[in-house]
Design a protein around this nucleic acid. Structure first.
Length: 954
RNA sequence: GCGGAGAUGCCGGAGUGGUCAAACGGGACAGGCUUAGGACCUGUUAGCUUAGUGCUUACGCAGGUUCGAACCCUGCUCUCCGCACCA
């Protein structure tokens, strides 16, 4: 077995010494691969390895296809996770400390990780070591960290945001967040003890003005559409409601609503009084959108502590319907609360929505459907209610009677009504959590409206349109993700792009805010074209602190005058023009691949940002998406013990093996499976190749045989298929064709030639095999390349090109036939219970059957009826003599659709078998004869069909 | 709930109207080589079968289209992924 680590080490040193992957602009066609940078809160793990192997294989492939390839590696350092992790270290949290220790960090070093900045220097350094140890062919000079600690990068992000703002894509506004009232911080999904996945849901609180009073009853709802059919107001009969002062109004709400108001409106409302629900019941209010007043009625399902504590009813809801009927038929209640019996009796639903498949009275109908007969069937009633809501939301259309809302779908009407209420001061938006959320500080969270949040306006329709356009023009690997992208672009709303803490660039015009890390990484690909200069400022005469918007305007957009840039930045004119030239040469990026998690945020944002800032010619060209990695078919996780860092794997198996296994793990968007067994398979297979080269390179027979031509043909075939797979980012398939298939064919070839291959075929094979393997296992390929005296680095070699003229399908069919025949002989021997045959005769089909089945196939094309095919055949006098056989067999074959396909002529079949006679003899250790059925009286011979010789064993 | 992907033999995973009992890899079994093991080589790996190119049962479940379906259509069941201010 080869020492894969030693080989890797040797070649990495050579590459380094000869600067094998140094990138310069030149006259070749370019390929800019924008690798996604890993987040620097830890070492690279298997998941990264999988994604980056795709990136690496792609760029090596493109390099071998003659492209000038720009590839670099960077380190993502902005955002909150590093800060949060550093904080956990400072607090001495054991799991965090254990995580660091597992990454090989000494206990004595751990205190340094209390400082987030230390993370930003430690992990990038270690990651770069990993990347080099894996043999990634990147140019290190282009590397950079995405952090405000990196001044030129920081300057670029400021330029990006200034530019977006100028274009009107960055705006300030309100935003609901899940809020920890104890710590006074927003609580993300991951920072919760309870309630992961719960989000703020928007409610509207319409105002119901009490008649002859200045009190306003607030009735929260998610169904503003139903206001058009409002019938009455429900209050909790046992509650004491609060009267609070809000912006000059007196609101009547439940107790719990007071805190909600505080968080939503940003101030504590003054409680100016109380009012018992009994004082409200039987009075009248005026609601929005209608011209009639509503009666206030008690309801026992109302809880003053939910929502605003008051609910309005449209009586279409089965819960409401049952409640009102109960009251209508209960004199005691009417008396107790002093209700007007005549008014109560008149309360009934006002139909406002058409739901296809349902009649006028939605509430009654759904109650009937669910078999509800009494108000006691609470579970059933709830089910019926949610089913009705679902149907209304999905299929409901506003009725003619709803005036300007007529014909609108229910969701549209809801939005329109909300807008209308807010505009007229008839309602206020509120947010409530969809479920209970408890933060790490054990506080129950609430929704808070942040009103000075900055947003990127991804909801802008024109911008969306441009983004769709860009997506349409991009190549997507695999194609299915395109649909997903379009969906995401439509769904994206404005995006809160700043936060109050964490690492990142300060918002240029408002230093309270730091730019959020998904928003600051959408543009680094442009920066990456000139990072070689900006990250090595002294070498190129650049002062990072002088980089201003004018500089980036000029380099990226060609705006302004070079003299002005020179004047303000102090960079030489030549240097500025070099950077401008480099950018123009490299941009746009040609490929960017990542795991599918980034689709709905980063990759979508990236397209948005490009269409906003750049002209069409600089829009992204292609995306590649891969699934997540599984290990031996289990999700990778620390608790399962199948979590591997990249360095654990490559130091044990060597980078080539790890890379090959990665590339073989899967392709496309489905989850990939890292097969630990394949690590060993890969080692054996590669070692075999090495041994084979030692033994056979430069040797072999000069004479030419049939089978040599076959092997040359299949090698070209494999190259062709592998190339096709590479072009489509299907690397598992590429390994299949370019490696495993070729190996299999080689084995067969060596068997067929009795280990006496032709020199020409073997040379072709060895060179092709090394070249197709080079992107996957570059160190191994270099080692073998050196052994066979290849020129320069194989990393700089040319990907092999398949020669279609050398691919001979009929030869492939011939070898298939041989393999099938061998299998048939074995089957016959088994059935005949003969262990050691003394003679085998193979009968090749009679010649007339070849033309017969060609004719049958033609007739079958036109008409699948067995009888008409037979008639057609028998019309030809040539077949008259064979009439009995044909009329017996042809209809049967046509009926069962098992018509032998004639790929080889009788002569070809004969020659092929004659050539292989010696080979067959060896296998069975007996005499083998090949006979044409035309020249044999043997009964068995009549069984022979084209492509299926008859067999006689003795 | 919304959107996406998927369900194939012992396992992973190709295949997307006839040439499919189904590539390739792995595992298992048998034989060869070997002192033995490993590695390597050869074969077997749904069942039946009169000496084979045949039959039966099979590609989540149930129907349908078709001369013909793993592949197309309809319904169902189940699995995975994402749903935001978080990388």
């Amino acid at each position: 077995m080869l020492d894969f680590n030693a080989i890797a080490d040797k070649w990495q040193k050579k590459w380094e010494k000869e600067k094998a992957f140094a990138v310069e602009v030149n006259s070749k066609p370019k390929f800019y691969e924008a690798i996604v940078y890993p987040y620097m809160n830890g070492l690279l793990h298997l998941g990264h390895l999988f994604t980056y192997t795709t990136s690496e294989v792609m760029l090596r492939y493109k390099r071998m296809r003659g492209f000038n390839v720009l590839a670099k590696f960077g380190f993502h350092c902005t955002g909150t996770p590093i800060v949060a992790a550093a904080k956990r270290v400072a607090e001495g949290e054991p799991t965090q400390i254990e995580t660091l220790k597992k990454m090989g960090i000494l206990a004595s070093e751990i205190p340094k990780f209390k400082d987030p900045e230390y993370w930003c220097s430690y992990f990038p350094e270690e990651t770069l070591k990993d990347v080099k140890a894996l043999g990634f062919s990147i140019d290190e000079r282009y590397s950079f960290k995405t952090t405000s600690l990196n001044p030129p990068y920081d300057a670029m992000i400021r330029w990006q945001f200034n530019t977006l703002k100028e274009k009107g894509y960055v705006k300030q506004g309100e935003h609901p967040v899940v809020w920890d009232p104890k710590e006074n911080v927003p609580v993300g999904d991951h920072d919760r003890i309870e309630g992961e996945g719960e989000t703020p849901k928007d409610f509207i609180w319409p105002k119901f003005r009490l008649q002859d009073s200045d009190l306003i009853l607030m009735a929260g709802t998610t169904r503003p559409d139903a206001l058009l059919g409002q019938t009455n107001l429900w209050v909790d009969p046992d509650a004491m409601y609060k009267i609070v002062h809000v912006k000059g109004e007196k609101w009547v709400v439940g107790d719990a609503a007071i805190q909600k108001i505080e968080f939503h409106l940003g101030f504590k409302p003054e409680v100016v009084g109380e009012i018992a629900s009994t004082e409200l019941i039987g009075k009248w209010v005026q609601g929005p959108l209608v011209d009639y007043p509503l009666y206030i009625v008690p309801a026992w399902f109302i809880d003053a502590n939910v929502g605003s504590g008051i609910v309005y009813s449209a009586l279409e809801d089965p819960v409401d319907l049952i409640e009102i009927r109960k009251i209508q038929s209960d004199k005691k209640i009417i008396e107790k609360y002093g209700l007007d019996e005549a008014v109560v009796a008149k309360l009934k639903p006002i139909p406002i929505i058409d739901v296809s498949g349902m009649g006028e009275d939605l509430g009654d109908e759904i109650a009937r459907e669910f078999g509800i007969t009494s108000s006691e069937q609470k579970a059933k009633i709830e089910k019926a209610k949610s089913e009705l809501n679902k149907r209304v939301f999905r299929k409901g259309v506003m009725k003619e009677s709803t005036g300007r809302y007529a014909g609108m779908s229910v969701p549209d009407a809801q939005e329109a009504i909300k807008e209308e209420l807010i505009k007229n001061g008839d309602g206020v938006m509120f947010y409530e959590l969809t479920g209970k959320v408890v933060s790490r500080s054990l506080a129950e969270c609430v929704v808070k409206i942040v009103d000075d949040q900055w947003f990127i306006e991804y909801n802008d329709p024109d911008w969306k349109k441009k983004t769709h356009e860009c997506l349409d023009d991009m190549k997507m690997h695999p194609e299915v993700v395109r649909k997903q992208f379009h969906y995401v672009v439509d769904w994206l709303n404005h995006w809160a792009c700043t936060r109050e803490f964490g690492l990142g660039t300060q918002l240029p015009w408002d230093d309270k805010w730091v730019i959020e890390s998904l928003s600051d990484s959408t543009f680094q690909m442009a920066y990456g074209t000139i990072s070689k200069y900006l990250q090595n400022p002294t070498e190129y005469g650049i002062s990072s602190d002088k980089l201003d918007d004018g500089f980036f305007d000029y380099v990226f957009l060609g705006k302004g005058k070079v003299e002005d840039v020179v004047a303000s930045t102090g960079i030489s004119k030549k240097m500025v023009d070099t950077m401008r030239g480099d950018f123009e040469y490299w941009y746009p990026f040609d490929f960017r691949n990542s795991a599918k998690d980034l689709l709905q945020n980063h990759l979508a944002f990236c397209v948005f940002n490009h269409t906003a800032i750049f002209p069409k010619k600089h829009w992204p060209k292609a995306y590649g998406l891969n699934g997540r990695i599984m290990v031996n078919n289990e999700k990778m996780s620390k608790s399962k013990g199948n979590f591997f860092t990249a360095r654990e794997l490559y130091s044990l198996h060597g980078p080539d093996i790890v890379r090959l296994t990665s590339a073989n793990a899967g392709e496309g968007i489905d989850d990939a499976n890292y097969d630990m067994q394949f690590l060993e398979t890969a080692k054996r297979r590669l070692s075999d190749i090495d041994l084979f080269i030692e033994e056979y390179h430069g040797k072999g027979r000069k004479s030419k045989k049939y089978i040599d031509e076959w092997f040359i043909s299949v090698v070209h075939q494999c190259i062709k298929q592998a190339t096709h797979s590479m072009e489509n980012v299907l690397f598992k398939s590429a390994i299949q064709h370019g490696f495993l298939d070729m190996q299999r064919h080689l084995k067969w070839y060596m068997n067929r030639t009795h280990d006496d291959p032709s020199r020409e075929a073997i040379d072709l094979y060895i060179i092709s095999q090394l070249l197709t393997l080079a992107p996957f296992v570059p160190h191994f390929a270099e080692e073998c390349w050196e052994k066979i005296g290849g020129e320069g680095f194989i990393s700089h070699g040319s990907w092999p090109i398949a020669d279609d003229k050398k691919i001979k399908e009929s030869m492939h069919v011939g070898e298939e036939l041989l393999r099938d025949t061998l299998a048939d002989i074995r089957a016959v021997l088994k059935l005949a219970k003969i262990e050691k045959p003394t003679a085998i005769s193979l009968f090749v089909s009679a010649s007339w059957r070849y033309s017969l089945f060609k004719d049958v196939a033609v007739l079958f094309e036109k008409d699948q009826n067995p009888k008409s095919v037979l008639d057609g055949i028998m019309r030809n006098p040539v077949y008259k003599k064979q009439g009995p056989w044909i009329s017996k067999n042809v209809p049967r074959m046509v009926g069962s659709r098992k018509i032998p396909s004639v790929a080889l002529s009788q002569k070809e079949e004969m020659n092929m078998l004659a050539e292989a006679t010696h080979f067959i003899k060896e296998i069975f250790g007996c005499d083998v004869s090949i006979v044409s059925a035309d020249k044999s009286d043997e009964h068995k011979a009549s069984y022979a069909l084209p492509g299926k010789p008859a067999i006689l064993v003795a």
